[in-house]
Amino acid sequence: MTRTLFICSTLAFWIVVSGLGMISLFRMPEKQGTAAPGEKIITPAELAGHATPEDCWMAIRGAVHDVSAYLPEHPSRPDIVLPWCGKEATEAYETKMKGRPHSPYADEMLEKYRIGTLGKAP
């Protein structure tokens, strides 16, 4: 019985995971945010060019933020945050300590560092 349970659950897991993979292949990415009027559109390639602690951009929920000035003040260890520089970091932003998302205060603060909207790759 345990063997059957293991085989069935493992197969079901892989079916779901590969299903999600297929869906992402066939659907257009929806990570681009809604551009605010007159706001700069930043491509993933441009975002990737700002991946150092001194020049750190992150895309969160479709918007790109230049958080270089804020990084020294961030409460967690630098090695938790720095790998996300130059990347789409929504998941990381929403799975803070104990899986909690950042507070509305953090959301508000993030807004101050917004510099543009994440666009499609050219």
């Binding site: 659950s9 897991f13 992402s24 257009m28 998941e91």
Partner: peptide, 29 residues
Amino acid sequence: GYLVLLLHPLALAAAAWSESPPLAWQLLS
């Protein structure tokens, strides 16, 4: 433990799915 841990990423993917389906794969990929 193994069965529950198989469901762990799938439940997180379901949370991402509710925001946008491709996000679910991005979380697992």
